[in-house]
């Protein structure tokens, strides 16, 4: 299995407190990395550094180090679902989903989008403005993206994907995450829930080494 991500000597401090230092790891295809740690231990900051949004973390991050064709943007292969769900309230779930995919250059037949929305339990809500949905349903709109099959995407970076979901939805999403990893994907996620599976590796932040 080829490497998806190498992180080398990451270091982060915030408000005069060192959150993590000398943090190095490598992830391969099929891996699920479960980031654990108490609130404020830097999990979100680490994820944001991995996708390239944060400038407060020092150290080197390389995506797809074995990729020789530099013409392909790594962004095209990575999906990041943040804590803020990127759901525009004035747009319907369907519009949100289509826009999110379009930003990454993926055009997917409409029936796939309807299917994905149905899978996350939004059947019948596809066309109403998102501000009429509950908080949990809005999270589902963001997560629906993970249920659209796009072969170009090789890695998921998920910030607390399991919060605000009911029990069935949590199980559904966990199954989906494991299936994605079995197909050769790589998942990095934070969660206060556990996720079980052979591929799962744990990494705990906020504990003095």
């Amino acid at each position: 299995m080829s490497a998806v991500l190498t992180a080398d000597r990451l270091y982060c401090e915030r408000d005069e407190r060192v959150l993590f230092e000398a943090l190095s790891f490598q992830l391969d295809q099929g891996d699920i990395l479960h980031l654990k740690g108490p609130n404020g231990s830097g999990k979100t900051t680490l994820l944001r550094r991995l996708v390239g949004l944060s400038h407060v973390v020092e150290g080197e991050v390389r995506w797809f180090p074995e990729d020789t064709e530099t013409s392909v943007e790594p962004n095209e292969k990575i999906w990041y679902i943040a804590h803020r769900p990127a759901v525009t309230l004035l747009q319907s779930p369907l519009e949100n989903l289509r826009y999110g995919l379009a930003l990454h250059g993926h055009q997917v037949p409409s029936e796939h989008l309807w299917q994905a929305l149905a899978q996350v339990g939004l059947r019948g809500f596809e066309d109403i403005p998102s501000h009429q949905l509950s908080a949990g349903q809005q999270r589902r709109v963001a997560l629906a993206r993970l249920f659209v099959s796009v072969p170009a995407v090789k890695a998921w970076v998920l910030d607390e994907p399991l919060t605000a979901l009911d029990v069935q939805a949590v199980d559904l999403l966990k199954d989906r995450i494991r299936a994605f990893a079995s197909d050769g994907g790589c998942v990095i996620m934070t969660s206060h829930h556990g996720i079980e599976g052979d591929q799962v590796r744990g990494l705990t932040l906020g504990v003095p080494a």
Binding site: G52, N75, E76, Y80, H83, R84, V87, G100, L103, G105
Partner: peptide, 21 residues
């Protein structure tokens, strides 16, 4: 509003050059 709901992050991570977006 894009900043508040998180759409801005997705925009900056898009595979299309963000300058054009």
């Amino acid at each position: 509003s894009d900043f508040e709901d998180g759409s801005l992050e997705q925009l900056l991570l898009a595979s299309t050059p963000p300058t054009l977006l």
